[in-house]
């Protein structure tokens, strides 16, 4: 404790004991005045000074009303009445909007249920909304994780939301065990925050819940897209694995076939090489002989003509003066005096 506080306390205690030197005297009231003031109005210090002792006891207010929790800023909460617990938490609900307390009016409940049903028909992930009042508290023995494991272990994947009407920021989300593990763990909490943010912009509690559900269904759709892409990737990798396996099988069958042929190939390799070499040698020799070959003609007796001792003009003439006069057009040789006809 601080020194100045000690000093104050000490002075307070010692004050009556010490002789008053310069103090203002307390007012002195006559008995009549005292009674008049007591009946007419509040008398300051009356209780302390031990005036009247016949004051009425404070009224019995019964159960203490909820008080605000100054530390968290939350209003004090009341647990959900026991009679509703079974309807909320005993089994997997048959409807997507669980409101056994009837907190939503009929039309709002109908609309929201329609919204949830429409979502369920479009999506592989169901959405269950447990509706509680703003100031209600879920009993400690009921845990969301336990509920999801107990009631939602089988069946379609689902997301459960504890929604406190008028206080969307208190909403809690739980995923069923059947929700694919391929969805990143950060995705459901992000979806919840996004839905809370969307709901907070509406004023009416029913509208808040509507916005909440709408936003959450959008985020669930995003999760589905992620699931699809993951599934497609998995399918693609499966397909490529299958293709690789097929190719491997084919190559293995080919290699097996080659392995079967290998002994035969080894047996035939040397004879084959010899054969090919022999053929190459033969072809080479044939080509060489052909290049070296000489050709002779029988010397037939030809009687000289035109007085020529060695030749008598058998031969052709061709003109190459122009491209317009090709050999084909000159095939018919013009007869002249030295032509044999």
């Amino acid at each position: 404790m601080k020194p100045w506080l000690w000093l104050t306390l000490a002075a307070g205690l010692a004050g009556p004991l010490l002789p008053a030197r310069d103090t203002t005297p307390l007012p002195t009231l006559s008995e009549a005045q005292r009674k008049t003031m007591a009946t007419s109005e509040w008398l300051a210090g009356d209780q302390i000074l031990g005036g009247s002792t016949d004051a009425e006891p404070p009224p019995d207010l019964g159960e203490a009303p909820p008080t605000a929790d100054l530390a968290t800023g939350k209003t004090a909460t009341l647990p959900v009445a026991e009679k509703y617990l079974a309807a909320y938490f005993d089994t997997r609900p048959e409807t997507f909007l669980i409101d056994p307390q009837g907190l939503l009016d009929e039309s709002s409940g109908h609309d929201l249920l329609g919204l949830l049903k429409a979502h369920s028909s479009d999506s592989p992930i169901d959405l269950f909304i447990y509706v509680f009042a703003k100031d209600q508290e879920i009993p400690g023995e009921v845990r969301g994780e336990e509920l999801s494991e107990r009631c939602f272990a089988t069946g379609r994947p689902a997301l459960l939301v504890y929604y406190f009407l008028g206080a969307p920021q208190q909403a809690a989300l739980y995923a069923s065990p059947s929700l694919p593990e391929t969805i990143p763990a950060t995705e459901p909490p992000q979806a919840l925050q996004s839905a809370i943010s969307q709901a907070s912009q509406a004023a009416n509690p029913a509208e808040q819940l509507h916005s909440f559900i709408e936003q959450l269904t959008k985020r669930i759709y995003r999760m589905e897209q992620m699931l699809h892409s993951i599934a497609e990737d998995a399918e693609g990798s499966k397909r490529s694995l299958a293709l690789a396996a097929k190719l491997a099988k084919k190559s293995s069958s080919l290699s097996a076939r080659l392995a079967r042929l290998q002994p035969l190939a080894q047996k035939l390799a040397i004879p084959g090489l010899l054969l090919i070499s022999g053929l190459a040698v033969i072809l080479g020799i044939a080509g060489w002989r052909r290049r070296q070959a000489t050709y002779r003609f029988p010397e037939l007796t030809v009687e000289p003509r035109l007085g020529g001792e060695h030749a008598a003009g058998v031969g052709a003439v061709i003109a190459f003066a122009s491209v317009n006069l090709p050999p084909a057009s000159q095939r018919q040789q013009v007869a002249d005096d030295s032509r044999r006809t």
Binding site: F297, V302, A311, V314, G315, A316, V317, I318, A319, R340
Partner: peptide, 18 residues
């Protein structure tokens, strides 16, 4: 006159035509 001709002697005459 851009003309060419080919003539053969008697030895080839039986074997070559014009």
């Amino acid at each position: 006159i851009k003309t060419a001709g080919m003539s053969v002697g008697y030895l080839l005459e039986p074997f070559l035509e014009e």
